[in-house]
Design a protein around this nucleic acid. Structure first.
Lengths: 245, 245
DNA sequence: TAGGATACTTACCCATCAGTATGATTAGAC
DNA sequence: GTCTAATCATACTGATGGGTAAGTATCCTA
């Protein structure tokens, strides 16, 4: 539509890499990059608080104590802003897969390691963009990119599940539906979690993973896990939340 | 803000119950109610397809082959439309709790029965409104009502979990976090499920509930469940989906 | 068959907001 | 000191879309 929007999304690279004459002093370029990241971070927080459509670029600019054109100096469109927020979150999850690939562990343990990082990412400021952003708000190009990234993560989880079934560390199940259930429970954190909560994203994920590993049915000779028990007595400070949302 | 918005939301009652003179012939009133429900159902489907903010009331009107003011004849605002969609979905879940209350069963079985209906509701046309609607799009009054309904459901699930721990049918765990995990996995269905999928909402929920009960870790002497095994061989027709979303 | 309620349309208003044209200011290179 | 690019602000445009005013057609009652 707009000539700016042609080609693959930027996602990190400075808008105009001064490829030539006097290579703008590198500290200046670093400054620019820092500011750009600040814009994206603030945008993520505002989207998280008020939703994409209820957040105007004037709002974001005001939070940064600048004006709207300044925001556009670092970002080409509101859409791109959303995209960058998404990427920032997803990169953390991809990194988790990378880290785990090098480890020699039963697949179930590698899976739980990934899920842990996954949950932390979803509970971060970028969780909203990763989870709640609607792809109808994005151009077809951006939408495709996002779907590809999501699919990559999905496939990664399914693969770990399959490997777990092979090495015997995971109970036989349908990898696809199981991946959906796991990811769903974790993604949902972005719907209800607020940073002022008594539990951290990591703690929540621990509890979830424990639940998924053990299951609801009582197991012979398996007593209550200490971690779960502890949480039973330590009352969270805020009741808040609710089920849906 | 608007004088219309004062008082509790309507949620079903005809806008102007002709309290008096010649009691508008009851078939006419029934007609009106049917049309009103059609408006809400169509709105739910459009919200589901394109999101709340990307759906204009002209769109909805066009789907109904009428004009925008006609929609306003049955509904006072776009916001109320969203609210009604939400209520329509939640009522199904509340009904599930009612039904199960009369039954003499171990709490875990009552819980899974509720979760089943829950999953079906989320996979229905009203799933989007129940799960993805953002309360920033609603007036404080509406938002409060919705939060109350959500909380009621949440508490209902937690109670079943506690009862299950007491009667021994559920492994000791933190009721709050467990409820979040269960509901999260099911809610997430609304993010990725489309009606043209190879699995029905009911089938998906069955698989999820089975997973919740059994857990990922292998159980001594428990072979793969037949239902899960079956799905492993029967390839779904559409890969689609993806993890997040 | 008049009169009022019901059901629906045409044509409009107007607030919001993404995005831009243009110009001012500052900082570094020479 | 001058010149140029980088950085930011002022002030606008244009489109979208929620909501309404006012009028038309239809139906039902009496």
């Amino acid at each position: 539509m707009n000539s700016r929007r042609s080609g693959p999304p930027t996602a990190g690279k400075p808008a105009a890499p001064p490829a030539s004459p006097w290579k703008a002093s590198s500290e200046r370029q670093r400054d620019r990059e820092l500011k750009r990241e600040a814009v994206i971070r603030v945008a993520a927080r505002e989207f998280n608080r008020k939703g994409y459509h209820n957040t105007s670029l004037d709002d974001i600019a005001a939070r940064l104590e600048v004006t709207k054109p300044t925001v556009y100096y670092y970002v080409t469109s509101k859409e791109q802003l959303l995209f960058e927020c998404f990427v920032a979150g997803v990169e953390r999850i991809r990194a988790a897969f990378q880290d785990v690939r090098r480890q020699e562990l039963p697949a179930r343990e590698r899976l739980t390691a990934v899920l842990h990082r996954y949950g932390e990412a979803v509970a971060s400021e970028f969780g909203w963009a990763m989870v709640r952003a609607e792809d109808q708000d994005l151009s077809p190009t951006m939408s495709r990119h996002i779907k590809a990234l999501k699919s990559e993560i999905d496939q990664g989880i399914r693969r770990l599940i399959r490997e777990g079934m092979q090495d015997g560390s995971i109970h036989p199940c349908d990898p696809k539906l199981t991946a959906f259930a796991l990811a769903g429970a974790l993604n949902w954190i972005a719907h209800w979690y607020r940073e002022d909560q008594s539990l951290s994203g990591s703690e929540i994920t621990s509890a979830f993973v424990a639940l998924f590993e053990t299951g609801l049915s009582p197991r012979a000779g398996v007593p209550a896990r200490a971690s779960a028990r502890a949480r039973l007595t330590r009352r969270p400070r805020r009741a808040g939340g609710g089920l849906l949302r």
